[in-house]
Amino acid sequence: MLLEPSGIGDPAYSQNMPRQPESARTARHLTASALHVWGLDEAADSAAAVVTELVSNAVRHARRDTVQVKVTRAGDRLVRIAVTDFSRDLPEPRHAAMDAVTGRGLAIVAALCDGRWGADPLRWGKTVWAELAVPEAKPDE
């Protein structure tokens, strides 16, 4: 279910999703919709990569059947993407070998977010988040 902004605090959209690979697509749609409503479409590609990685990690490593994706407008040009799951295991960036198929996702998130990402432990799980600074749109020349 898509939640409308409450008018209290920062505007946000969130949705609970099944913990399955197909939810990454749903999360990208949620994120793109929120960015469009806020007039921040220029961040759509980076945000799609970030939310895909965070949801994919939750699908791969979490427990239980659902995850929650939340997209918050944390400032005029700042978007926070968060994925909450039921695993208390915190993510750790890895150094992937050149021929490795996995292991680069958090490095990509860190690069897209200029290092502004982290994980907040919860009593029953965790929230992994990343903040994207949205650059000003360049005027057409």
Results as ranks from 00 to 15, higher is better:
52 T>P: 02
106 L>A: 04
86 F>T: 00
52 T>Q: 08
91 P>D: 03
63 R>Q: 13
119 A>L: 03
108 I>V: 15
116 R>N: 08
73 R>G: 06
130 A>T: 06
124 W>D: 15
111 A>E: 13
78 L>G: 02
70 K>E: 15
89 D>L: 12
91 P>K: 04
123 R>I: 02
97 A>I: 01
75 G>Q: 08
136 E>S: 08
103 G>V: 07
105 G>L: 03
22 E>I: 11
47 A>K: 07
107 A>W: 00
64 R>D: 15
106 L>T: 01
138 K>M: 11
119 A>K: 04
56 S>F: 05
31 T>S: 03
105 G>D: 08
75 G>L: 07
75 G>R: 09
49 A>T: 13
115 G>K: 02
81 I>R: 09
5 P>I: 06
61 H>E: 12
120 D>N: 13
51 V>M: 06
48 A>P: 05
68 Q>S: 12
135 P>W: 08
36 H>D: 13
6 S>I: 01
64 R>C: 11
139 P>S: 13
115 G>L: 05
1 M>F: 07
57 N>F: 02
107 A>G: 15
106 L>I: 06
100 A>P: 03
97 A>H: 13
66 T>W: 13
4 E>A: 08
21 P>E: 14
11 P>T: 07
111 A>N: 10
56 S>Y: 10
106 L>R: 04
18 P>L: 15
48 A>T: 13
138 K>D: 09
87 S>L: 06
137 A>M: 14
3 L>V: 14
128 V>E: 06
141 E>S: 12
71 V>S: 05
56 S>C: 12
88 R>K: 13
140 D>T: 08
97 A>K: 08
75 G>W: 11
100 A>N: 09
135 P>G: 09
81 I>G: 02
80 R>F: 02
109 V>G: 05
12 A>V: 02
101 V>Y: 02
22 E>W: 03
140 D>N: 12
50 V>K: 02
116 R>H: 14
31 T>N: 01
73 R>H: 03
32 A>E: 10
17 M>G: 01
89 D>E: 14
28 R>A: 12
138 K>N: 01
10 D>R: 01
78 L>M: 09
81 I>E: 09
116 R>G: 00
11 P>K: 12
